[in-house]
């Protein structure tokens, strides 16, 4: 039996520092169809973890369940020391503010400027018109947004309409917006999916450098095996709603991961 297809050790990767994310017996059912089933794993702080799996294996659903954009059916999620499923709506908003998400489609507001889109990230801690548009934002918020834009190399495009930028630049703006949140944990749902190979590589490198620089934790979905191997410390493989693969990236190779995908797509 291939080592990569071996049953997962649910808590491998946790450290003595205590995990930032513990998922226990998590399940999600849509109309009697089980998408996630008895999911158990834990993530150590400061790690970049890649979540891989065939289409329909439940990766995006899992990410959305972690911050309750989709409500899980069963199980427990402890993230950043909070029992996520027990959070009341107001606490849930405060919790979500600590979790930055980079989406497959950047999900920016097309007609607004780059700067306004980045300033939206401050809505995690500032409410009202001051956080809606750059023209109304306080000077310190504008300054912080410019720093975030500078970090992703787009400070000179602050006043441009975001839909006038290239796909890679828009993904960078989305990362700047996520930085504006000052997150402690980052979820990334195929941030490289809609980008050409070189731009995808640049975006992934930027994301990982931010994670390393700020000591954040990252859980990312990627279908590109080379990115999985290059930008993660640990790989979790999801199949039929369960963790079917769990190993340090140092022990993984492209051929083994490809066999995992082929096996899952065939089954």
């Amino acid at each position: 039996m291939n080592a990569h297809l071996a049953p997962a050790n649910a808590l491998s990767g946790s450290t003595k520092l205590g995990p930032v994310l513990v998922v226990s017996d998590l399940a999600k059912t849509f109309d009697d169809r089980r998408i996630l089933s008895g999911l158990d794993f834990a993530l150590a702080p400061g790690q970049s973890t890649a979540l891989i799996g065939a289409n329909g294996s439940g990766k995006s659903t899992l990410l959305k369940c972690l911050i309750r954009l989709i409500e899980p059916t069963e199980g427990k999620i402890e993230m950043l020391g909070r029992d996520v499923r027990a959070l009341a709506p107001r606490d849930l908003r405060a919790f979500r503010a600590q979790v930055g998400i980079v989406w497959q489609r950047h999900n920016l507001v097309p007609r607004l400027s780059v700067l306004s889109n980045v300033i939206h990230g401050v809505q995690s801690r500032l409410s009202g018109p001051r956080a809606w548009f750059q023209a109304l934002a306080p000077a310190e918020v504008r300054a912080e947004a410019m720093l975030c834009l500078d970090r992703v190399g787009l400070a000179d495009r602050a006043v441009a309409r975001v839909d006038s930028l290239s796909g890679g630049q828009q993904q960078r703006v989305a990362i700047a917006r996520m930085l504006m949140q000052r997150p402690a944990f980052i979820l990334a749902d195929e941030p490289d999916a809609s980008l050409d190979p070189q731009t995808g590589e640049e975006v992934m490198a930027l994301l990982l450098s931010l994670v390393r620089e700020k000591g954040l934790s990252l859980l990312m979905i990627s279908h590109r095996l080379e990115h999985t191997l290059e930008f993660s410390d640990r790989i979790l493989g999801l199949a039929q709603g369960r963790i079917a693969l769990d190993l340090p990236t140092a022990d993984a190779d492209a051929a083994g991961l490809r066999r995992f995908f082929d096996h899952e797509e065939a089954s």
Binding site: R93, A97, I101, R111, A131
Partner: peptide
């Protein structure tokens, strides 16, 4: 719905989500 989901995920209020992501798109 993408930008609205993103705003909800950021932790924006319902009003913040509507004004900053729905209204500009509907302008």
């Amino acid at each position: 719905p993408g930008p609205q989901d993103a705003m909800r995920a950021i932790g924006a209020s319902r009003l913040g989500t509507i004004v900053s992501s729905v209204f500009p798109a509907c302008l």
